[in-house]
Amino acid sequence: MGLVESGKMPKPLTSLLNTARKYSLWAYQWGLACCAIEMGAAFASPRYDVMRLGVIPLPASPRQADVVVISGTVTDKMVPSIKRLYEQMADPKYVISMGSCTNCGGPYWDSYSVTKGIDQVLPVDVYIPGCPPRPEALLEGIVLLQQRIGREDMADRWRGDPLVVQ
């Protein structure tokens, strides 16, 4: 671990570690609305089968998860729970925002009870558009996240300010 802290991680080792990380993502599902069913189709259906991308769905708790897929309409009443969920996850952690509602409010952009975008509360790594996005779109989002993890500099990740949610 000393290598990572000092920021002197050799490049080959970084890419080795990143490869290991990106193909063993544990995805916590924060399924809220319609998109949750498409997420279920991507995660549980034999046709889409997310596990072939090295993603393990259904961890028992957010503490075991590397990535959370927030799918569905986020309401103002729900936001505190989502924040708490995010705080419980161990670093390094990633957020996929699935569907128009989570991205920006979607069809409920003018509603009095819907949060217009989860990125007001959490840092989002990948946005997946659609209402709801097809399961294939979620798979692509996961591939994009894996590419992002693959390019990450471990030292930056270590030294960078940890994300504290206000």
Binding site: S111, Y112, V114
Partner: peptide
């Protein structure tokens, strides 16, 4: 309930 209240009845009015 209410964690998924999206206000359909109000939104249909506009």
């Amino acid at each position: 309930p209410g964690y998924m209240h999206r206000g359909y009845e109000k939104l249909t009015e506009v």
